[in-house]
């Protein structure tokens, strides 16, 4: 076993897995946008083969399966690598949980095909994709040199605590993505998603405001909070755009390129926003501490999780 974060290559591999997962989420969005979820009626093979002719909806559906297989392979290697080289037991366990999640995700994807896109399974598939993305991002962060370098946590004197605000924002974004998935798969109307957008916007603006004005010495937190704010504004724009473009193209005889790309961008930026908010949350637990607290609470994530 090596020291925490010793292996630069392990970290790079975790980053690669996270990037592959982000690409996979985009590919999944393209499948839904192109109405290609059932273009390949069989699973796990495609038209009885490993490599069917890649045309029409098959390109999107089988392409999604190929990227998913690659991400599954990356995650398997990452989990084994962590299990053999990572000294922190909770990081090793997170690797195993992430491996279990990607296997479950593959099975859910198969079930959506076999049971012809039932809304609960399709929504679960979309939600687990975001959770798995969070796990890969977390692994990339936990194996990074920055995370494993010694640092003196700064005091957070404000109430509510910044870390709690960040947790609330992350949870709200995840719920909002679930509501968006339910909307896209015809499980819910648009009203819950609109309300969710308002709550997320308020929380992220609050986080960004606090980081910018009260934590100016914490460059990482400020940068992440401002990135979350910028992504949130972009996401709101894409959300309005997605609604409008779907409205004006609802009578189209086939999926329109503009609709596909705007709605897919909305999914992708949503995932990025969740990822940035999660990183901000984890970093806030790492870099901030309670002020004047005498409570025996753990001060860093390492202590919380160890």
């Amino acid at each position: 076993m090596s020291a925490p974060g010793e292996s630069v290559w392990l970290h790079r591999f975790a980053v690669l897995t996270a990037c592959g997962t982000f690409l996979l989420i985009i590919a999944g969005g393209l499948v839904v946008g192109n109405e290609a979820g059932l273009a390949v009626p069989d699973w796990p093979l495609s038209y009885g083969m490993l490599m069917p002719p890649m045309e029409g909806g098959v390109f999107y559906e089988h392409g999604h399966r190929m990227i998913a297989t690659s991400v599954g392979f990356l995650m398997t290697v990452l989990a084994i690598w962590l299990w053999r080289r990572e000294p922190r037991r909770w990081v090793r366990r997170l690797g195993i949980v992430a491996l279990g999640a990607v296997i479950t995700q593959g099975i859910l994807g198969g079930l959506t095909v076999i049971y012809l896109l039932p809304t609960p399974i399709s929504v679960s598939h979309a939600c687990l994709a975001q959770l798995f993305f969070c796990m890969t991002l977390s692994l990339a962060l936990f194996t990074s040199r920055g995370w494993n370098s010694p640092m003196e946590p700064a005091e957070d004197r404000e109430a509510p605590q910044f870390r709690h605000l960040a947790v609330a924002a992350t949870v709200a974004i995840f719920i909002q993505l679930a509501l968006g998935a339910a909307l896209r798969h015809n499980g819910l109307g648009i009203a819950p998603h609109l309300i969710g957008a308002g709550i997320v916007a308020v929380l992220i603006l609050w986080v960004a405001h606090r980081a910018f004005w009260k934590l100016s010495g914490q460059g990482t937190l400020v940068r992440l909070a401002l990135a979350a704010g910028a992504l949130m504004l972009l996401q709101l724009t894409l959300g309005v755009g997605s609604y409008w473009i779907r409205l004006v193209t609802q009578d189209a005889v086939q999926p329109q390129l503009s609709t596909v790309w705007i709605t897919t961008a909305h999914v992708a930026v949503g995932a990025l926003l969740l990822g940035v908010s999660l990183l901000l949350t984890l970093q806030s637990y790492r870099r901030l501490t309670l002020s004047g607290s005498t409570l025996p609470v753990p001060k860093t994530l390492e202590e919380t999780l160890a």
């Binding site: 859910l108 079930l111 049971y115 039932p118 809304t119 609960p120 399974i121 929504v123 679960s124 959770l131």
Partner: peptide, 8 residues
């Protein structure tokens, strides 16, 4: 996350 999988 998987709780809604009862249908279909």
């Amino acid at each position: 996350t998987l709780a809604g999988c009862g249908g279909g």
